[in-house]
């Protein structure tokens, strides 16, 4: 009996079993990036830059050259790498603490210089690795270990909308927000990730895809509840879609 191959691990991923918690969507996002690298034939000239945070070990799961940056500095790191070797495909993979808190300056300036690399920004509204503290993207009223009475916007301000913040820059870029909590959203997310890398391959612009992700462990929910929480709470505050695309040349 002949068998048909209908599903396999992308070449750009290793066989390692991830350390991510059940219900965390980092794995899905990794896979979208890896599929894209496969489809565009980029694996052998790609260098990924890992952040500090849950995805610091991303290099164990991607089957390409990888670097581990200092906390928040991945965009500066990627700038040095890409400027030194413009022929490489470079992407940073960063969480909300890494990109929107300690590394705010680095991402804004890399985007504003129009660095020709791609950033995958994973926003799950909380600090995962350190155990559930408030993030710059924690929603108003959301309880975390460092906002035990819920995020108070009077003292902590409102969550930072990174997609909107970076889209305010004049420098051409591709900036989109997607989610991966339903199959339909995953398909949309893949399109955005692919576009982001294509823009890089063409040497067009900086590209960033913000991906709304889950953290059932630190949110104190089951995986199913957490996907519903993304839909009910995150999507209304963090609207999905492309906000900035480079003008046609």
């Amino acid at each position: 009996m002949a068998s048909n191959l209908i599903f396999q691990c992308p070449d750009s991923m290793t066989d390692a079993i991830t350390h991510y918690c059940p219900g965390c969507t980092h794995g899905i996002i990794h896979r979208l990036v890896a599929e894209t690298l496969d489809e565009l034939g980029l694996r052998e000239r790609t260098v990924g830059v890992a952040p500090v945070g849950c995805s610091v070990l991303a290099y164990n799961y991607f089957n390409c050259d990888f670097l581990e940056a200092a906390h928040g500095r991945a965009p500066a790191f990627a700038t040095g790498l890409k400027r030194a070797r413009p022929d490489l495909i470079v992407f940073t993979y960063q969480g909300d603490g890494d990109l929107a808190s300690i590394g705010t300056a680095e991402i804004i300036h890399a985007a504003n210089r129009g660095e020709k690399f791609t950033t995958i920004f994973v926003n799950n509204a909380i600090y995962g690795m350190t155990g559930g503290q408030m993030a710059p993207t924690t929603l108003p009223g959301q309880v975390t270990t460092t906002s035990p009475f819920g995020r108070d916007v009077q003292t902590c301000g409102y969550p930072i909308r990174v997609r909107e913040l970076l889209s305010a820059l004049r420098t051409p870029a591709y900036i989109a927000r997607v989610a991966v909590h339903t199959p339909r959203h995953v398909i949309e997310a893949k399109k955005a990730v692919r576009k982001a890398f294509q823009y890089q391959v063409q040497g067009r612009c900086f590209s960033l895809v913000e991906v709304l992700s889950t953290c059932p462990t630190n949110w104190g929910m089951t995986p199913i509840e957490s996907t519903q929480w993304v839909q009910d709470n995150m999507v209304p505050y963090f609207p999905l879609g492309e906000l900035k695309v480079p003008e046609e040349e």
């Binding site: 260098v47 500066a76 790191f77 040095g80 790498l81």
Partner: peptide, 22 residues
């Protein structure tokens, strides 16, 4: 060659880190 004025010394030195990796 490459000359880049970074946004801070923090960023500049991490750019060094990245370029050295290459």
């Amino acid at each position: 060659g490459v000359f880049l004025q970074a946004e801070s010394e923090v960023a500049a030195s991490n750019m060094i880190f990245g370029a050295a990796s290459a």
